[in-house]
Design a protein around this nucleic acid. Sequence first.
DNA 1: CTGAAAGCGCTTACAG
DNA 2: CTGAAAGCGCTTACAG
Lengths: 339, 339
Amino acid sequence: VNLKELSEHLGLSKTTVSRALNGFSDVNEETRKRVVEAAKQLGYTPNANAQRLATGRTDTFGIVFPLAGDRLADPMFSEFVAGVADGAAHCGRGLYVLSATDGEETCYRRLAHNKVVDALILTDMKVEDLRVRLLSHLGQQCVCYGRTASSIPYAHFDLDHEAAFRRAGELLIGLGHRRIALLNGDVRFTIAEHRHVGWVSAFRRAKLAVPEDLLACGAMSEEAGYKAMRRLLGKSEPPSAVICACMFLAAGAVRAIRDAGLQVGRDISLVAHDDGLSVIRPEAYDPPLTTTYASVRAAGARVAEMAAAVADGAEIATVKDIRPVDLIFRDSAQPLRAK
Amino acid sequence: VNLKELSEHLGLSKTTVSRALNGFSDVNEETRKRVVEAAKQLGYTPNANAQRLATGRTDTFGIVFPLAGDRLADPMFSEFVAGVADGAAHCGRGLYVLSATDGEETCYRRLAHNKVVDALILTDMKVEDLRVRLLSHLGQQCVCYGRTASSIPYAHFDLDHEAAFRRAGELLIGLGHRRIALLNGDVRFTIAEHRHVGWVSAFRRAKLAVPEDLLACGAMSEEAGYKAMRRLLGKSEPPSAVICACMFLAAGAVRAIRDAGLQVGRDISLVAHDDGLSVIRPEAYDPPLTTTYASVRAAGARVAEMAAAVADGAEIATVKDIRPVDLIFRDSAQPLRAK
DNA sequence: CTGAAAGCGCTTACAG
DNA sequence: CTGAAAGCGCTTACAG
């Protein structure tokens, strides 16, 4: 059934039926009830495409799957997408997902012209990121998950990874550690850059030298964590503690530590960032892992909310939010032992 | 710019411009060139919503994020979504993602009435699954990733997990193992059911008793793998080999094996199913893990292709495809040693 | 080979 | 409080 049929069935005009259904105040309450009832009865659902064409709004957000080499780690991205889908559903929006197979820029351009989404969600932000400017130029609203160097205001949500990793470093320093490694992502991504800064500033604030030789950057996989940790443990002066940018890196690091005949906690202290993925949880480890924790799924939901605000015309410069990250102390971080 | 402006700019009618752009054969080649050129020049992109309303097709597929408790494992699902997005983009389609926050059925109903997607993609199929019938009843096209018990024909793609796990079992039996454990997912899901059947039939074919006490079903997480393996290793007659339904279960199992002071391969043989996620790769383990392998991302792309076929009106009963799974032999599977 | 016109199914000033 | 009418931006028989 469509609107015309519904209105004929009711003996009312399309105008009135439409207004009744859309909650306008100038409809007789009695009439509204009849309309709503009949709509339910006949199973009427407005044709979304007609609505979109008529109103110019789509109630849909867009997000593009970054290219293979150009993302941090898939499971985190995907969990984020799930969060966005949740948040979008929560405020009555849908989510349109695109793959950047034919080039990311093409993809953004098409979306902007298409009129298919009200706002675009950007992830995996880099320090130097052309996308914010491109979209602003295309007149396409967007909100970023993560910060970037931008001369124009842009809507964004981010976690304070710098503070998180500084506190993680300070915790380990407080436990007596000095040789504290950092297994990080690619520093072109703002998040990795912030974490690096946090790690450095933990030493600076304590007036200690920064052990730059214990820094490893790259992929955020189990394999990368394993290889990096194995390499560091082979050093003449190996680390006594390590901070990992994600649970997959941590899983690899744990494996390398065991392979070297060492024990997590007793021999090597470990702190990992936990994005809250259910497939790999720090509490399950033995000893359980100390973590900096922030749910990437919740972040997705929050970004969706912000996208709704942007779509509803909020002032861009006001749509920003930086949240703290929890530090959860568990047994994988222990006082440095004398040899 | 819209079609009207473009056609005025060209001094042609909207009809002709539209036909030229959509590749109709009855347009003068010269004219078509002028039109295409001008469209590019002015940056014309058709308003997708108007197109959808006019044609009744959306060139969009839909997929719904299953509810938290109702999914196998998020990273696999998400990698699948990425594959679908790839495949959809490849055939000029988009992907609409929904979260089932207000109930899965409501979600499907709305989508079906909405006219927002041409075909729906169903994942995490259960043996008893009401969705196929519901959608057929709603007149909504769909294609399933996985099989289900259905009295009506349904479009589906699946991997032959039964054969994969039978072969994994036979490999281990051939190496002398008899106490072969299975760490599986929830058997209400068809995939877990098939794997279970495969494991059982490996023993049956070899005329051996099935070690039902070595079967563990549940979540597909690192934690679940760790706990299940620890429990099994504590048995009076522990397994000498284990088959894991995914890499996260395997990661947990590996950890439990090490914690017990045993070595993978030498003491306990291990075969895992690898979905091809880049964050956790079997080759990186020491020893590298023997796997049954099938890329879940490729599966997603294939399902998108099939959805395109369905949307283009292919006969449903013909849209089905069951693919074999590779068995990749590495050092984690070794001959049983005498004690 | 090209164009005028109707139609897709909604929304929304505007008039009453 | 309700309705007739125009419009959103396309596509597609149909006529020429």
